[in-house]
Amino acid sequence: MNFRTQIPLNTYTPLSVHKIDYESEILLFGSCFTENIGNKLDYFKFHKSVNPFGILFHPKAIENLITNAVNEKEYKENDMIFHNECWHCFEAHSELSDSSKDELLSILNENINSTYKQLINSSHIIITLGTSWVYRFVETDTIVANCHKIPQKKFLKELLSAEEIIESLDSIVTLVKSINPNCEFIFTVSPVRHLKDGFTENALSKAHLLAAIHQVIEPRKHIHYFPSYEIMMDDLRDYRFYKEDMIHPNETAVNYIWEQFKSVWIDKNTSDLMAEIDTIQKGLAHRPFNKSSKQHQQFLEKLNLKMERLRKEKNIHF
């Protein structure tokens, strides 16, 4: 008897696709689940950049960032707002906010410039969409990426239709392809449920994202889908795979989804190098009983030799 429902992953990626290896340049945008996958890529020392403007939950925010990057926008003072003794930008997550106006301006312009360069050089762009719900700042009639805890009465809450999301995703792909025609796109939907919107509202939101993405994906044009959401909902489908808030996937779930992603998208020729890096990472995390012991010093010396060899041979830095 089989007590689980496995997702047939081999249906999602053509055999001829350019998979991720240690020559790949990976750029990730999107919801907090993007950070989970980014952390895994970082652990195994792949070349990656994650959310240069912080976590972005909806497609309009990602489209806006990519539009600004491709157009090489220069941020100015009127792109920022002062609230709660801090400067914010509606196009970026609060983690970029700063008490210094000049510092935030510098960060925004530095990050938009680096995003442009990364878009040109990326071999793979991974976009994780979290929600179809957006907030429109009434004062300027613009959809924001983050409300920065500004009173909700200053915003209108709207649900993007599937058609609006399709337009946004088409725009993202067209913009990137205009400067980097050969990159692979991987779209996925975050398994994190946005229950603050309401249970039915969250289901509707995810449905709009799924309906839109499946109108855009076209493997022959290097546009793919990875079923993170389906793996969480239909394969794992148990609260033991959630954190205490019963909303976010726990470490076991993230590891499982990563293994599924790896089986589809990571080149199998990297497995030996990944295993070696994993051994080194576990060695670096090891906490000895006696740091000054001869045995531990020998262990550290061997570890350093391994890291130095990988730095010289593979350009991998720890």
Rank of each mutant, 00 (worst) to 15 (best):
F3D: 08
F3H: 04
T5P: 00
Q6P: 05
Q6S: 15
I7D: 03
P8Y: 05
N10M: 10
Y12C: 06
P14M: 02
L15C: 00
L15V: 11
S16Q: 03
D21M: 10
E23D: 12
S24M: 12
E25H: 15
L27S: 12
L28P: 09
F29L: 13
E35W: 01
N36L: 03
I37K: 04
G38D: 01
G38L: 06
D42T: 15
Y43F: 13
S49I: 12
N51E: 13
F57H: 13
K60G: 09
E63G: 04
N64V: 09
N64C: 07
A69W: 11
N71Y: 08
E72Y: 04
E72K: 15
M80K: 00
I81T: 13
F82N: 08
H83S: 10
H83L: 10
E85S: 10
W87P: 00
W87G: 08
A92K: 03
S94G: 11
L96E: 05
E103Q: 06
L105S: 07
I107V: 14
L108D: 12
E110A: 10
E110W: 00
I112D: 05
N113A: 14
N113Q: 12
S114F: 06
T115Y: 00
Y116D: 01
K117A: 01
N121C: 08
I127C: 11
T128P: 00
G130S: 11
S132F: 07
Y135D: 07
F137G: 00
D141N: 15
T142Q: 15
I143D: 12
A145H: 03
C147T: 06
H148S: 09
K149S: 07
P151C: 05
K157A: 02
K157Y: 00
L159R: 07
L159I: 09
L160I: 07
A162D: 05
I166F: 04
S168K: 14
S171W: 03
T174E: 09
L175I: 06
N182L: 09
I186P: 08
V189D: 02
F199K: 14
S205H: 06
K206H: 05
A207Y: 00
H208Q: 14
P219Y: 00
I223S: 01
H224N: 11
S228R: 04
Y229C: 01
E230R: 05
M233E: 12
D234S: 09
D235E: 15
L236D: 01
L236H: 08
F241S: 07
D245I: 08
P249R: 12
N250T: 03
E251S: 12
E251M: 04
A253V: 01
W258S: 06
W258T: 10
W258C: 05
F261A: 13
W265P: 09
K268I: 10
K268E: 13
T270F: 01
T270C: 12
S271V: 13
A275W: 05
I277V: 03
D278F: 08
T279P: 02
Q281K: 14
K282H: 15
G283V: 02
R287L: 12
P288L: 07
P288F: 06
F289C: 04
F289G: 06
H296D: 02
Q297N: 14
Q297R: 15
F299W: 06
N304C: 10
N304M: 03
L305R: 04
K306E: 14
E308I: 07
R311Q: 10
K312G: 02
I316P: 06
F318E: 12
